[in-house]
Simulated scan of single mutants.
Amino acid sequence: MSTYLLAGPNLRCWLAVLDEHEQNKYEEGPIFEVLMLRTPSGGYLFDPAGRCIYCGAGGPLTREHIVPFGLFGDLVLPAASCRGCQEVTSGLETFVLKRMLGVTRTKYGFRSQNSRKRRRQDGASIRRIERDGSRTEIPLETDQLPFHSWALPVFNTPALAWQAPYEDVVRDDKLEFRVGRDDAETALEAGGGLHPIEMPVGVYDPQKFTRFLAKVAHGYACAVLGVDGFPHLLGEFVRSGHEQPRIFVGGELDIEEPRPTIYELALGTTLAWNGQRFLGVRMRFLSFLGTPTYTAVVSEHLEQEIELPDHAAYEKPIKVTVKGRNDEVLFRSG
């Protein structure tokens, strides 16, 4: 059996599991099982922004979950988004939560603003590849959904901080995935065991995902430093996008080990190739699954170092026990 990622139109991501010569051959990879998953209460309510952090409108204003509620986001910035911008950011969050991470969120029972609606809509299915090349769709029950598989982009640093042309900056970008033996066996069994199958992991759209990351970073910077605490850079990009979406948003090519957190945010300053000072936010979501780390430049050309408060970094912890390939405990928290 070999495991590989298929990318079709619009970079729709499918994890293809092939049984070659009816032999159980599995591609070795990170194998782990989440035995316990609980999120402690907590969070932080920031001071009201008083105007839309994206377009500057004065009202009426809604509160802003910096990280979506559906990812256990508990950092709230009141009076921070006008109705129009709220519709835009809500659309970006819905795409990421449902199209990119819907299978994972369903498996782990992540909360939703409308959990009944999510359970009805976020079901997944596999596609069995028949001998004539046609596909037969087979629905999966919730308990058959992937345990920990994911497919997410891995980015180099934001292009704004590079001297090289944009095309050179994004050359090393790739779609990375993790699939475990249990996931592959579940999908094969559901497909009858003898046919190659395709297992959906998610849908990736570079514009929507980078704008989502920019939305989180911009909101966190506004909450920590105040709306007037730094020169804004990302408001228009969040609202309308950019033909080069990686100019403000990037990441780290090396993927860190899993950590017992749902998400991690950190605000800080850094220097670019030409000595200019940038303000950026480092982000990681579903860290307990060993996912990539992302960064976004929220302000450029800072004349001096910005004094950061104590809460410039935040982690949402989970109580979790994770076991590996031979039933050994990889880490335990709580």
Rank of each mutant, 00 (worst) to 15 (best):
D228G: 10
A223V: 03
G192L: 10
S240A: 07
G50C: 03
D327S: 12
Q244P: 05
F237V: 06
L330P: 00
M283W: 01
Q244V: 00
H218P: 03
L15V: 03
T104M: 13
M100E: 11
T157F: 12
T104I: 14
E257G: 00
H301I: 03
Y54K: 06
C85T: 07
L152P: 03
T89S: 13
L92S: 00
N326T: 02
N326H: 15
A296G: 08
P40K: 04
G43S: 04
V203I: 09
E303V: 07
A217V: 01
F46T: 08
H195A: 14
G250Q: 10
L213Q: 03
A57P: 02
V170I: 15
L194C: 11
L265R: 05
V88D: 06
R116D: 13
G324K: 11
V67W: 13
D327L: 15
H21F: 10
A190S: 07
A7Y: 04
G73F: 04
K25C: 10
Q304S: 13
E257C: 02
S333I: 02
R325M: 04
W150M: 13
E20V: 10
V170H: 11
E22N: 14
G251T: 05
C13M: 14
D74L: 05
G241Q: 12
P30M: 08
G29M: 01
V224W: 03
L233K: 14
E167G: 02
S299H: 04
L5I: 02
K319M: 08
F69A: 09
I306R: 03
G324I: 03
A151K: 03
G334S: 08
P158I: 09
L175M: 15
I126R: 08
P200A: 01
K25A: 15
D182T: 07
N24D: 14
K208C: 01
N24C: 08
D254P: 01
D74N: 11
E28F: 07
Y204M: 12
A80Y: 05
F110V: 02
